[in-house]
Amino acid sequence: MRKLRALWMRLRGVVALGKTEDEFSAELESHLQMHIEDNLRAGMSAQQARREAILKLGGIEQTTQAYRERGTLPLLDNLLRDVRYALRGFRRNPVFTMTVIATLTLGIGATTAVFSVVDPILFRSLPYANPEQLVSVGLTAPIIPVEFMLGGSYYDWRDHQHPFTALTSETGVEACDLTEQNAIRLNCAHAESSFLSTLGIAPVLGRSFTEEEDRPSAPKVALISYGLWQRRFGRDADVLNKTIAIDGQQTRIIGVLPRSFEMPTLEPADILVPQALDETEQRKADPGRVMYAFARLKPGLTREQAKAELQPVFEYSLRLAPHAFVRKFTSECVPYVTVSSKM
């Protein structure tokens, strides 16, 4: 019960802060106006004054994104974990869960912040092929500001969806240890076998893992980041098929990620391993593993069209969702990459 209380306290904190994006736009706007006025006083032309102010800010879109990340991401991990508990504990304690959901709806409303990339170096294009076709897709609830998927729904979506040429998933980045001589702590990203191909990323060396290698009992394989390849293996091409011990498990290196590789969440990742979920079990699971899904829109399809086409699979998820959740779920399909170059 204490855990649930802690969740409530934290969420109330979020509500109390009442940081809406509208408010932040107003704050930025006032910042810009003050800066522009100063610039005008310093003798700049109106156009110059505005341009300099925006430049100095680092771009409005980027700043908003950075702000949004700060507002949601630190909470996200814990939030998802708590939601997982909530979903799991639902049958055990339905009244409480219902209360939380109802209360939260009042507090946070329909915040659907997108899970988008803050480009660490402004105006650099992102390392994915045809980024405009990439979307993050999933369910959102009042208490979860980003799209998420559940193992119990994901595979059905993947089987029956129409708007995408590819749908893929990842289950997050976790700390892992390279347990051998000069042991180091690293970050291991867990993804489905179709992950790299869907994002349009090709390893600089070797290959991505196959569907067979993405099964729970398969021998362990991994791709390593360019950075790790450089630091640990001196960029030696012989690194392929080398065996390393990750958390005590013998793992074969099958590929090296490009230097520009980044996880969609921008979490640092030194190693990419198969998420190795038991698909049969996940299909039956309720709610199943929490995951993030990314997809590539069919050429020419808009997000709105995609959303409409996703309605049947979305309804499938609704049938699975705990009763109290049902009205609150909406399907989301948002542009994954939101780098703007407007100045």
């Binding site: 910042h31 100095k56 680092g58 980027q62 702000y67 990340e69 700060r70 507002g71």
Partner: peptide
């Protein structure tokens, strides 16, 4: 870089 200030303030 003024943009970095606001996340820090938040």
């Amino acid at each position: 870089q003024y943009g970095t200030l606001y996340p820090a303030l938040l």
